[in-house]
């Protein structure tokens, strides 16, 4: 295992991080499959999960991350490996809400408790495969609506806003855009433009600067994550505009700082650090005889303002 760890870190393609896997039969073994560990959000989640495993001390954690957000093949491999290793539970944040259904089904057939968290698997795909699986995670759409509502409250009715979207095709990107659109419709704001900046600061900075040129009368910006919100804030400061309000999502430290300074109106915390830990708790409960989870177990989200 140690060698694997070294090899994996060296290759930076697939990172396998383990706390000790002991031979103790009684202790449940939980396999945690996350998305890109290059993403601050999942990095925090991993740290949270590891701290949690240490604190509880009554289970073994094997955590796996990937190189990038869309690398679902590595996730499939990880799930297959866990099935072979015979773990007791798999806790997974799917990189693709459709592609991951089949391997998870195999895991369930192998008698492994499966918890789907962070991003929900596709309902249709689940039905097709005859899989019944609960989802433990935040309501991205609701969270985005909270941020959108915060922006709407600070703007007059009919105010002009734009959306900076995440990666096209990513499920949470879609949910957040829908949430923003919900609050725009409800508050009667005017949506001028909606563009993707691929979750990326520099791209958001450029794209938004250009949007601002095309629409100098923008009054508010809804960014689907904080990295992009940071780029937007920077573009506003370069343009010397302090009359435009921005909201983000994720509550990363750099954004929290901006909120404190009043440059970012609001962001949304979905408590990523605890998310994996909570999902693991639920998984262990089920392993130890608690009833199976059903439907959507919503995890807390909170609006962060100054």
């Amino acid at each position: 295992m140690k060698f694997m760890k070294l090899a994996a870190v060296a290759a930076t393609s697939l990172m396998v991080l383990t706390t000790s896997v002991s031979a103790d039969e009684e202790r449940p073994v939980v396999g945690l499959v996350m998305k890109s560990l290059a993403n601050e959000f999942f990095q925090n989640m991993l740290v949270g999960a590891q701290a949690h495993a240490e604190k509880r001390g009554d289970y073994d954690l094997i955590a796996v991350g990937m190189q990038n957000e869309t690398d679902f093949e590595s996730q499939i491999n990880a799930v297959n490996n866990f099935i072979t290793q015979g773990v007791d539970a798999i806790v997974l944040a799917p990189a693709d809400s459709r592609a991951m259904v089949r391997p998870l089904k195999r895991a369930m057939e192998a008698g492994i408790t499966v918890i789907n968290f962070d991003v929900a698997l596709d309902t249709e795909a689940k039905e097709q495969q005859g899989v019944e699986l609960a989802f433990v995670g935040p309501d991205n759409r609701e969270g985005a609506k909270m941020a959108g509502d915060a922006l709407a409250a600070a703007l007059p009715s009919g105010a002009k806003v734009v959306i900076i979207e995440g990666n096209p095709g990513a499920d949470n990107a879609t949910q957040r855009r829908l949430g923003f659109e919900d609050s725009i419709a409800q508050a009667g704001l005017t949506l001028l433009d909606s563009r993707t900046a691929y979750w990326e600061t520099e791209e958001a900075n450029s794209v938004f600067a250009n949007m601002l040129t095309a629409n100098p009368d923008i009054q508010g910006v809804m960014a689907a994550n904080d990295s992009m919100a940071i780029g937007v804030v920077q573009a506003l400061s370069s343009a010397g505009r302090d009359d435009i309000l921005v909201v983000g999502f994720d509550n990363v430290p750099a954004a929290a700082q901006l909120v404190k300074e009043g440059k970012l109106l609001a962001t949304v915390d979905q408590f990523g650090t605890e998310m994996a830990a909570n999902a693991i708790d639920m998984a262990i409960d089920v392993v130890q005889g608690a009833p199976e989870l059903e439907g959507w177990v919503r995890t807390p989200i909170e609006l962060v303002t100054q």
Partner: peptide, 14 residues
């Protein structure tokens, strides 16, 4: 890339 992620512990520096 790996070096960058390692040094920054995958976090944004500000």
């Amino acid at each position: 890339r790996g070096g960058a992620l390692h040094v920054a512990e995958a976090r944004t520096i500000y």
